[in-house]
Simulated assay, not measured.
Amino acid sequence: MPLKHRWLNASLAMGSLLLLSACDQRNFETLPPIPVEQLEVLGVQTPIKSVHFRDRDGEGLLVLSRSDGQAVDAESEQEVDKVVLKATLYGRGAASDVFKPRWQIEQETTCSGLDLDVDFYTDVSDVGDLNKDGVAEVTVASHSFCGGGIDPHDIAIEMREGQASYTITGQSLITPAGEEPVGGEREDSASLKNASQVLRDHMDAVWQQVYKRPWSEASPPVDDDPDDEAE
């Protein structure tokens, strides 16, 4: 009988260790940042932000990058300004493995002879585990504008969880002095409308944080000729 009890206790102890190990593997955690030099090895030339983490699928690395250049307009055949934003999620199974792309979101904006303002909202573009299921949710938010006045920016917010994607697209809300507000409309994807409450609440919170931001917070205007104001 004593031998039987010892075997039973050992089995229970082993089962507990396996259970704890399984729980640990499901936990989401943020890891120390990857050095910029290692990001360049991945082909990222101008990283804006990166988030290093581990979830149930292994080690992950979100990298936001931007490139500025020129393009040729297909209709006018004239050169236009071009900005390309890329959000890439890399992954690897072990620290000794090489990071490989899992998916990429690319946004290209061209603009001819007008003000071009394109960038990520880096403060709300992040990675977390909202529903505590061990699978990371990756949120990427950006804005774009091509115009000659104070008009709404186009806003794009996308969240990915594994293979699932949820989006909000719309325009920022502009309230000129003494005039009626302009913009502020949004459209939620069908997948977001059918998502769990915690995911819908998160996406709405991100939208609420960015859609009322004035022009100056999206991208401070540059005063090309300060003497004009003095005159």
Rank of each mutant, 00 (worst) to 15 (best):
A156I: 07
E137Y: 11
G170V: 04
A156G: 10
D133N: 13
C146G: 09
Q163C: 00
D123E: 15
S144G: 13
V140F: 08
S142Y: 02
V124H: 06
P176F: 00
D123T: 12
S125T: 09
Y121C: 05
A141Q: 04
S142Q: 12
C146F: 05
L173H: 11
G148T: 00
T167Q: 11
G178A: 03
D126W: 03
L130R: 10
D133R: 01
S142M: 08
G170I: 06
H153D: 15
R160I: 07
I157K: 03
S125M: 05
I174H: 09
G149W: 08
D133V: 04
S125W: 03
V135K: 14
Y166C: 10
E161P: 02
T169W: 02
Q163M: 10
F145T: 01
L173G: 02
V118W: 04
R160E: 11
T175S: 15
S165W: 00
L130T: 13
R160F: 11
V124D: 10
I168Q: 01
D154G: 10
V135T: 14
Q171D: 11
I150Q: 11
I157A: 03
V140P: 08
A177P: 01
F120K: 01
G149M: 05
D133L: 04
K132Y: 08
K132C: 02
I157D: 01
I174Q: 14
T139W: 04
I168R: 00
C146T: 09
R160M: 14
A141G: 03
E158Q: 13
N131E: 08
Y166H: 14
T175C: 10
S125V: 05
T167H: 01
A177F: 08
V127E: 08
C146P: 11
I168W: 02
A164P: 00
H153F: 15
Q163F: 06
V127M: 08
D119Y: 02
S142N: 13
G170S: 05
D133H: 04
V118K: 03
A141Y: 02
S165H: 00
I168T: 03
A177M: 07
K132E: 13
V118L: 07
S172H: 11
V124Q: 06
D119F: 02
A164W: 05
L130I: 15
N131C: 01
A141S: 13
V135P: 00
P176Y: 03
E161C: 05
G149N: 07
C146Q: 07
D123V: 06
